[in-house]
Design a protein around this nucleic acid. Structure first.
Length: 270
DNA sequence: ATAGGCCTGACG
DNA sequence: CGTCAGGCCTAT
């Protein structure tokens, strides 16, 4: 479910409450998606102190004070939620993390695609290095360079490729293209320097705008407090097939591109 | 580059 | 019943 703005929202909330806290107990309610598995997982995290919570692409990186980290990926339907008071285990809950001073975090995941892996320093850096640049941490020019090659690749495929640019998913790929006025099926080789710059600028803009609204709740996404993000109402094309473009009223077109539902305005986007 | 697969749930 | 879903890995 979550893309960069949603994961970043969750990261900020987790970081604010978990920084400096020690993991005092872990209950694995449904095993199989953690690594190492089962009791070894609990052994690997118990008693360790969270230095801070980072985000890299769509990964949450719970960094331990003694090095290494627990990395979590929410995939489509994963959630980390703060709980207080009486705790009732829900159907899709996978684990409970108890930190000192009574901070409880529940990890749940309806579709069970997500994972949490404990990695030590070397393997952590190795994993993080497989991702492309963070779009909000590089300049417009550096980001624009990522839209240069391979020339036959579609813009949509490039935006979705985590090794090309980190953190963008289906919603923001479509939204960035609409804001830039470029059709997502265009090939990188057809883009002008100005096209690449606009795409870079609008990619940053849409991610920042969404973070300001705590992300998009199209379906399942909620933050660590169970609250929905406010960006849904500001989406220009995603999920709006057949509805009028917010700039020109032309019905939004939906096609399949790079195996994903893809939305664009045939009038505004060339 | 592109199907297929991992899972469950919502919707038509 | 079939289709689709915000991710991403594998095999072809």
């Amino acid at each position: 479910m979550p893309e960069l703005p949603e994961v970043e929202t969750i990261r900020r909330q987790l970081d604010a409450k978990l920084r400096g806290r020690r993991l005092t107990s872990v209950e694995l309610w449904r095993s199989g998606k953690e690594k190492p598995e089962g009791l070894k997982f609990i052994d690997a995290v118990l008693g360790r102190v969270i230095n801070r919570v980072d985000r890299r692409a769509k990964l949450l990186v719970f960094r331990f004070a003694d090095g290494g980290a627990m990395v979590g990926h929410l995939k489509m339907t994963g959630k980390f939620t703060f709980k207080k008071g009486l705790l009732v285990q829900q159907e899709h809950d996978r684990a409970l993390f108890v930190f000192d001073e009574g901070v409880h975090v529940v990890w749940s995941d309806v579709r069970q695609f997500g994972f949490v892996h404990v990695l030590e320093e070397g393997e952590l850096e190795e994993l993080l290095a497989t991702y492309g640049p963070e779009p909000l941490e590089v300049t417009i020019e550096e980001l624009a360079e990522r839209f240069r090659t391979p020339k036959t690749r579609t813009i949509k495929a490039a935006l979705l490729d985590q090794a090309c640019i980190a953190g963008i998913g289906n919603i923001y790929a479509d939204e960035a293209c609409h804001r830039a006025g470029i059709r997502p099926m265009r090939r990188l080789g057809e883009l002008s320097d100005d096209d690449r710059l606009r795409l870079a600028i609008e990619t940053k803009n849409v991610l920042n705008d969404s973070i300001a609204q705590k992300g998009t709740s199209a379906n399942d996404y909620v933050d660590t407090n169970g609250e929905r993000g406010g960006f849904l109402a500001l989406l220009r094309v995603y999920g709006r097939a057949g509805k009028g473009c917010r700039t020109c009223e032309t019905p939004i077109t939906k096609i399949v591109l790079a195996q994903r539902g893809t939305h664009y305005c045939a009038n505004c986007q060339k």
